[in-house]
Amino acid sequence: MAVEIERKFLVKGDAWRSLGQGKLYRQGYLASTQQRTVRVRVAGDRAYITIKGKSSGIARSEYEYEIPLGDAIEMLENLCDRPLIEKIRYRIDYQGLLWEVDEFMGENHGLIMAEVELADVDQSVVLPEWIGEEVSADPRYYNSNLAKHPFQSW
């Protein structure tokens, strides 16, 4: 089984902006329950379908497959719940780990969040100075929940 181990944090300041290039991501949810989510994502000129299981702490099962870009665009436009999640993702290497900083747009505008994937739930992490409060355990910050309850409505 594929397992995703991920910690999420709010981002403070703008020091991170010059550290990585941004890429537009658009994603939507075909199914979203407490037990599983099924997501379609377009990242630049590539597309993916991802199935995630229920979270257990900072870990959960995850299966991701590349799919044809045209199919993903059709699914986003015709099958996914609204609103779609739109964000610019910046990939930043720091202290041997890859951080992904998401600057949300649309109905989640104003939210900037960073996540880091780990090899083990107990792996130690050196936090960059632009990392703020940890929100890994707060389900409001799951992308699937941001699609149901956008940040601007909080």
Rank of each mutant, 00 (worst) to 15 (best):
D120F: 04
Q35E: 15
M113S: 11
S56P: 03
E86R: 07
L76I: 01
L127C: 00
L97Y: 08
L79N: 08
L97S: 08
K148M: 10
S136M: 11
G110E: 02
R41A: 05
L84H: 02
L84G: 06
L118C: 05
Y141G: 13
Y29F: 15
A119D: 15
G96E: 04
R82N: 02
G70V: 04
D93F: 04
I88D: 03
W99K: 14
I92D: 07
S124P: 08
K148D: 06
A59T: 12
L98H: 00
R26M: 02
A43C: 09
A147R: 04
A59M: 11
D45G: 10
I5L: 11
R140S: 13
E74N: 09
A137R: 11
E133R: 08
E107M: 14
L24R: 14
Y65W: 05
F151T: 05
R36P: 01
W16F: 01
S61I: 06
S32K: 01
D102M: 11
R140L: 09
E115H: 12
E103Q: 10
I51R: 11
E115K: 08
Q123W: 12
S144Q: 08
I131Q: 03
Y141D: 13
L97E: 07
R60D: 06
D81C: 04
I73F: 02
Q21T: 12
M113F: 07
Y25R: 03
V40H: 01
D138M: 09
Q152Y: 09
S55K: 13
Q152M: 15
D81Q: 08
V40Y: 02
G106F: 13
D45R: 14
R36W: 09
V11N: 05
E66P: 03
H109A: 15
R140F: 15
C80S: 00
G53H: 12
T33L: 01
Q123A: 15
I92R: 00
F151I: 06
N108T: 10
Q34L: 12
W154R: 13
V135S: 08
S55I: 01
Y94V: 02
A15W: 00
Q35R: 13
L10F: 02
Y142S: 05
I51D: 03
G44M: 03
R41G: 05
Q95W: 11
G22S: 10
C80A: 01
D122I: 01
D71Q: 04
R82E: 12
I49L: 15
K52Y: 06
A15I: 03
Y141M: 14
V116N: 08
D45M: 13
D120Q: 07
K23Y: 00
E103W: 00
E4R: 06
V116T: 12
L111T: 06
E107S: 14
E66D: 00
P150E: 09
S61P: 08
Y65K: 02
R26E: 15
S56V: 12
S61L: 12
M113D: 05
F104D: 05
D120R: 11
V101G: 08
